[in-house]
């Protein structure tokens, strides 16, 4: 019973506004206003540490400069690749885990408890732990790999461009795998048993069953999970910053890291805000996809 509302009132009996007002007021002060400020800053030249250069309104100049710089597009591509790599890793491993856990096996609760551990680890703690794991001289990763004869000499994981890129993505994957696995598991468990059993009678192999029955049924779940994960990964600051600060050179500088560096390293508030707004627009697109994916299944 949703009551249609005819005229504006604040009565707690008839109107939703009474209930919405606190959150709306709060959010307009704490979210809408800051966004407006950031948008405004993106039209200015404003470097806090350089009063000699002055603070001026420059219109769209920052955007023009940004879109014309090859560096920005390189960062943009890097962000897309990093996000893609991490989300792909999370999804694949997450799906594998979910698929294994969906089987009727013993010790399920035990496995589920283990799965929680990376999830509950605060991001900053995870970054610190991984930083130590990756350490070139004393890190456990080098030790294990040399013991297994997969590596002949110490490797400085965060000291090479490609390996740092992959290593930061792996840390991000690590944090995200449990969530993905749980989402997929929920999805798998919602597939009616009869559907799978009927496939058994037809003599479908495990792989065929996965490809022809499970994956199509799981499509909405997969879409929701990967989009959500892409949004979080795209936003990830807490992993990259403590691990590499965007280095070596700029191998792990994503848009979010770049925005932070501009705003709080160089105090170039104008350019920092411009990048923030670009990120904002990209996020809006992602959110639209997520929203659509959710809406498709149910009328909200």
């Amino acid at each position: 019973m949703l009551k249609p509302l005819r005229r504006f009132t604040l009565s707690p009996e008839k109107s939703p506004f009474f209930y919405l007002l606190p959150v709306l007021l709060f959010m307009s002060v704490m979210v809408a206003y800051p966004i407006a400020r950031v948008l405004y800053f993106s039209f200015t030249q404003n470097i806090l540490t350089r009063p000699d250069l002055g603070v001026t309104f420059v219109g769209l100049q920052n955007y023009v400069t940004l879109f014309q710089s090859a560096e920005f597009w390189a960062t943009f591509t890097r962000t897309a690749l990093w996000t893609g790599l991490s989300v792909a890793g999370k999804s694949l491993i997450g799906f594998l885990l979910a698929w294994l856990l969906a089987k009727e096996i013993a010790w399920k609760r035990f496995y589920m408890a283990l799965l929680l551990i990376p999830w509950v680890t605060p991001m900053v703690v995870a970054a610190i732990a991984w930083r130590w794991v990756y350490d070139g001289e004393f890190g456990m990763l080098n030790w294990v790999l040399t013991e297994l004869h997969m590596l002949s000499d110490h490797y400085v994981w965060l000291g090479h461009k490609l390996s740092a890129f992959v290593a930061t993505a792996v840390t991000d994957m690590w944090l995200g795998i449990p969530f993905m696995a749980m989402l997929f598991l929920a999805g798998l468990q919602s597939i009616p048993r009869e559907v799978l059993e009927s496939a058994d009678i037809d003599g479908a192999s495990s792989f065929q069953r996965l490809r022809l029955i499970i994956l199509p049924l799981m499509k909405p779940v997969i879409l929701v999970a990967t989009t959500l994960s892409a949004i979080w990964t795209f936003n990830s600051f807490g992993v990259i910053w403590p691990l590499t600060k965007g280095g070596p050179v700029n191998a792990t500088t994503t848009l979010v890291v770049e925005a932070y560096q501009r705003s709080f390293g160089a105090f170039d508030i104008g350019m920092g805000s411009t990048i923030a707004i670009v990120i904002f627009v990209i996020l809006m697109l992602f959110t639209l996809v997520y929203y659509r994916a959710l809406m498709r299944r149910e009328e909200l």
Binding site: D135, G136, E137, V156, L158, G159, H160, G247, P248
Partner: peptide, 12 residues
């Protein structure tokens, strides 16, 4: 680092 290889990877 690169030619003489007398230092560990400095980037870290």
């Amino acid at each position: 680092y690169r030619k003489h290889q007398v230092v560990p990877n400095p980037l870290e």
